[in-house]
Design a protein around this nucleic acid. Structure first.
Lengths: 223, 223
DNA sequence: TATTATTCATGCGTGTGCTCGTGGTCGAAG
DNA sequence: CTTCGACCACGAGCACACGCATGAATAATA
C-alpha cells in the first residue's frame, strides 16, 4: 500500500511518515504542493494525505488539479482549521475525508485504512467489471474475454452505463438521457444502432447484452 | 455509521449530536440548509436528520434538491408542527420518516436505527412474492417453484397485478383497466387468452390461479 | 481538407398480442 | 337426471410493431 504525504511542517511530516511506515505502508513525502502534484501524477498511490496550508500550491488547488487530471487517488485533508466551511471546501474539491490538527496518530491510521478499504471496494472509482468484460474509465481501455477491444466514444459511454446497471434492464429512454443527454425522444433509432455496433464488438452472439422486448436492454455477465 | 444532523437550534442540535455519538454514530452537524446540502452531497451518510424550519434553505427544499441530485440518503424530518399536512409534504419531498418536537431521545435513536436497517436491506421493496412464485419488478425476473420463467410483457404485467391482489378475486374489468389500460370493454377475450398463456407457464394444473365463474380470477399462493 | 465518429434511412425478419372459432365446463331450470 | 345457455379454455393463425443490421449522409475533429 503506497501513501503520499504532502506536508510542509517538518515535525508533523516526520511524525506521520514514521508512524505510517511502522504500520507497513510505503510512504513518500512531498514538502510542498508542486512536488506533491508531480509525485501524485507519476505514481499510483493508494491514498494521499494532504495539508491544506502549503507553500506554492495549496492543498485544495492541488486536489482540484489531480481530479481534473482524472487521478482518482483517495485524499485525506489535514488542516489547522476545523470550521465546517473549510471542511466543505475540501470535500467539494474532491477530498474524501478531513482531519483537524492536532490529531492522534491512531485516528489518522484508522482513517487511512478506511479510505483504502473504501477505494478497493468501489470499483466505481475507475474500473467497471462484469463477467469477462472490463472497462477502465480512466485509461478508457476495454477488454472482453481477455483481449483488448477498441470502442468509439458513444459505444464506450453506453457500455459504461450498462455495466453500472448489470443484471437489470435499462430502457431506451434511460439511455437517451444518460448516454446521449437527450431529455426527449429524438424519434430515431440511434440507440438501436449503437447497441448493434457494440454487440458486434463485444457480444456477437447476444449472450451478454440481451434485449428485453418492449422494455430495453439488459447486460448479463458471462458466467 | 455516519449521521448528518441539520438543525439550527443550538440546544436541540447539541442534545441530538451528543446522544447519537454516545450511541456510536459518527455525527456531523450543519446549522443551516446550505451547509447541510453541501455536506450531504459530498459525504456518504447513512442517515440525515433534517429540521424543517431552517435559515437560508428550508428542510423540505433541501431534501428535494438532494433527491434531484440522486442522493438516496434516508431522511428523518424534525418539525415543531405535527399537522398531517406537514407530514405529508415531508414524505412527498422524499423524506422517509417524521418526528415531532418535543421528542424523547430514545425515540429518535430507535428511528435512526430503523432507517439504517431498512436502507441496507431495501432491495426487497421491488419484489413481489406469493407462495413459490416470485416476481422482481426491477430485474423482471420471475421464478416459480425455484426455476426461472420467462414471461412476455403482458403476461408479466398481469402476474404483477395478480400478486398485488393475492387471495382476493380480480374481475376482468379490473384487469382490462390496470393491465391493458382500457377504460372500456373491448368485447373480446384478450384477458382469457393471456391468462391461459400465463397458466401454461406458471400454473399448468390450475391450482394457483383459479377462475371464479362470473367474477374473474383469484390467485392463491401454493401452501 | 482528410479522417473519424455519429446519425439517418431503409428493408427485412420475428416476437408479440390479438382475434377467431371450436370444444369444454359449470350451474340453474325443467 | 337431463337439458340448455352462458361462460371459459386454448390452439391456430394473422398482422403489426419492434428490433436488427447495413450503407449512405451528415457532423465533428485533426
Amino acid at each position: 500500500m503506497r501513501v503520499l504525504v504532502v506536508e510542509d511542517d517538518a515535525k508533523i511530516a516526520s511524525f506521520v511518515v514514521k508512524g505510517l511506515r511502522q504500520e507497513g505502508f510505503a510512504v513518500d513525502h512531498a514538502p510542498d504542493g508542486d512536488t506533491g502534484l508531480a509525485l501524485a501524477t507519476s505514481t499510483a498511490y493508494d491514498t494521499a494525505i494532504v495539508d491544506i496550508m502549503l507553500p506554492q500550491l495549496d492543498g485544495i488547488s492541488l486536489v482540484k488539479r489531480l481530479r481534473a487530471a482524472r487521478c482518482p487517488v483517495p485524499v485525506l485533508f489535514l488542516s489547522a482549521k476545523s470550521s465546517v466551511d473549510d471542511r466543505i471546501k475540501g470535500l467539494q474539491a474532491g477530498g474524501d475525508d478531513y482531519l483537524t490538527k492536532p490529531f492522534a496518530f491512531s485516528e489518522l491510521a484508522a482513517r487511512v485504512q478506511a479510505l483504502i478499504r473504501r477505494a478497493n471496494q468501489s470499483p466505481e472509482a475507475t474500473r467497471l467489471t462484469a463477467g469477462d468484460v472490463t472497462l477502465d474509465l480512466v485509461t478508457r481501455e476495454v477488454t472482453c474475454a481477455g483481449r483488448a477491444v477498441s470502442l468509439q466514444p458513444r459505444e464506450f459511454t453506453l457500455l459504461a452505463f450498462l455495466l453500472r446497471h448489470v443484471g437489470r434492464p435499462v430502457s431506451k429512454t434511460m439511455l437517451l438521457e444518460h448516454v446521449w443527454d437527450y431529455s426527449f425522444d429524438p424519434q430515431t433509432n440511434v440507440v438501436d444502432v449503437v447497441v448493434s455496433r457494440l454487440r458486434a464488438k463485444i457480444d456477437p452472439d447476444h449472450t451478454r447484452l440481451e434485449t428485453v422486448r418492449g422494455v430495453g436492454y439488459i447486460f448479463r455477465p458471462h458466467a
